[in-house]
Design a protein around this nucleic acid. Structure first.
Lengths: 127, 127
DNA sequence: CGACGTTATATGCGTGCGCATCTAATGTCC
DNA sequence: GGACATTAGATGCGCACGCATATAACGTCG
């Protein structure tokens, strides 16, 4: 049984680490690539998978976002030409999401920035 | 020099841990105590310190919030009767923030809940 | 086939956030 | 003292979020 103070201590530390990185990431990604952190993460999920099409549902499972937030994030990507929605023929409730060429490119550019920020602000694996 | 993949891996893990805990915390604190996570954290800062009065500036340094967000968080606490603002006589630009009795009480109640959520959702100190 | 529950996604709504800016008080230099 | 920079905090604004709900397609059972 872990003492309560340790628990709070660890949470506090997590909170600080997270915010340190997230704030910088959010700002830098936005300023230099016009991307939200969520948008970047979504693109990331869409590239690293080999299969061409992902269902919203699958994306949602892999991400921390609420269903509605994910829906809107994808909408933003679509509006920006970075992704496309395709409706599923077998079950027309479902929606496939596919990254576009522009999306791949944007992601590749942003990835550099992303790594840079991590290297600078993600504290060395002390924990 | 840490490999890039490890860096991303660690960040991804941090992101997931944070969101797992933060989402639950936010929801539970709100539903059972009417508090935002930021509000709880602010109260926490205000109680654990011995000195009666804290300057906004000092609070800001200890927290992850932007200056404007902190200002509004304190406003909400004040509106809810959980804290009070006092202007500093020596330098009338500065503002002191003080927790009220109601604030102490609310914090004490919420602390239980807070610990419970941590115990349940903060993954054991694997990292 | 038709009523009803269920599932997948989109959308209305209110809220907290960060950025930029405003206001007001202090410090500085002549 | 008066002009100007600086500092502490508050506020206008736009945005992404979560919750609740709407919409539409599917499944089921009579």
């Amino acid at each position: 049984m872990e003492p309560e103070t340790d628990l709070v201590e660890r949470w506090r530390s997590l909170l600080n680490s997270y915010n340190e990185v997230a704030c910088h990431l959010e700002r830098v990604l936005h300023d230099t690539h016009g991307l939200t952190l969520s948008e970047y993460e979504t693109l990331d999920r869409l590239t690293t998978q080999e299969c061409e099409q992902r269902r919203m549902q699958d994306l949602a499972e892999q991400m921390y976002l609420s269903q509605s937030a994910l829906s809107r994030t994808v909408s933003r990507l679509v509006n920006g030409g970075l992704a496309e929605r395709t409706s599923c023929q077998a079950d027309r409730r479902q929606v496939f999401v596919e990254i576009t060429e522009a999306g791949r490119q944007r992601w590749a550019e942003a990835r550099r920035t992303h790594l840079g920020v991590l290297a600078e602000h993600l504290s060395p694996a002390a924990s």
